[in-house]
Write a protein that binds this DNA or RNA. Structure first.
Length: 292
DNA sequence: AAAGCGTGGTT
DNA sequence: TAACCAAGCTT
């Protein structure tokens, strides 16, 4: 019986009782898990739920999504944010249909090769859909390990080699996928960034951060993202106009979305370059249609 | 490898 | 209220 075994058992027992009943935990097919993971990138569960339900009803398989246009995906994405994720999920559906016979691949490397799938998402799908053993390191897991294991308030800005080695060494031999889900869940509902609920934590007495008296974060400043007046805000305005319209919109409709013409044009150009907007002629613009 | 990329709820 | 935060990825 090692210290790790104790940590594992407590978190797994806690998770068995406290796990939220989420739709992507009921339907753990590769497609369900992939869709949910992409939607959850930088986006809270509460906002993903309704979009996820509608999405899976409309496109129950990768082939179904691949058969519709990228613009349909972007419109269905609604206000989840980062609409390039919708584009990449559509591209992933096309790749899965063409290269993998319509089945979400179960190999980490094949998952990683899909558009919009990075290290975290590949590990998450391999774990949650296919029961494999991977270090799944999202913002929740990283914060939990930083606190419980390292005694620090927050992890480094990006994953370090040492951090990955530590997470890998903590992986249990069995039930690693459940361990991944449990540590994520703890970070999401108990060991939160702003106000951790240590009174409800199953491993509070093992936590080095707690034992050290909750020292403040001492690393490089955690940078927030500017918003007002940025290109991101302008791009969001332009996309909202296109999303809310059935078909193509005249340039004038986009011009009304932002005062500064130079910035507006730059953003429109960047959206076209990103494939999120199609110039359809006669000065009109639309969400991307089917390819040529 | 640092910076860009949406949106809205919480503090 | 401004700042922070949310199951990251890409270039």
């Amino acid at each position: 019986m090692t210290a790790h075994d104790d940590l594992h058992r407590r978190l797994l027992d806690w998770f068995a009782v406290e796990a939220r009943d989420l739709p992507w935990r009921r339907d753990t097919s590769g497609w369900s898990v992939l869709v949910s993971e992409v939607m959850l990138q930088q986006t809270p569960v509460s906002r993903v739920l309704p979009v996820y339900e509608a999405w899976m009803r409309r496109w129950p398989t990768p082939a179904a999504l691949a058969a519709d246009s990228p613009g349909d995906a972007v419109r269905a994405w609604g206000r989840l944010g980062y609409p390039r994720r919708a584009l990449r999920l559509h591209q992933a559906a096309v790749a899965i249909t063409e290269r993998h016979g319509g089945e979400v691949p179960d190999e980490h490397a094949a998952l990683l090769a899909l558009p919009g799938v990075g290290e975290y998402t590949a590990a998450a799908v391999a774990s949650f859909a296919f029961g494999q053993r991977h270090a799944v390191m999202d913002t929740n897991v990283r914060r939990v390990f930083a606190r419980v294991v390292e005694g620090q308030a927050f992890p480094a800005p990006s994953v370090t080699a040492a951090e990955r080695a530590m997470a890998t060494s903590l992986l249990p031999e069995h039930d690693a996928h459940r361990w991944a889900a449990a540590t994520m869940e703890l970070g999401a509902v108990v060991c939160s960034a702003r106000s951790p609920r240590c009174d409800a934590c199953p491993v509070a007495d093992l936590c080095r951060w707690r034992a050290a008296g909750y020292p403040e974060h001492d690393g490089p400043p955690r940078r927030g993202q500017a918003w007002h007046g940025t290109d991101r805000q302008v791009r969001g305005r332009l996309m909202a106009v296109l999303r809310e319209s059935e078909g193509p919109v005249p340039k004038a409709a986009l011009d009304a979305a932002w005062e500064d013409a130079q910035q507006r044009e730059r953003c429109l150009d960047s959206l076209v370059a990103d494939g999120l907007v199609d110039p359809v002629g006669d000065g009109a613009y639309a969400l991307p249609g089917h390819g040529p």
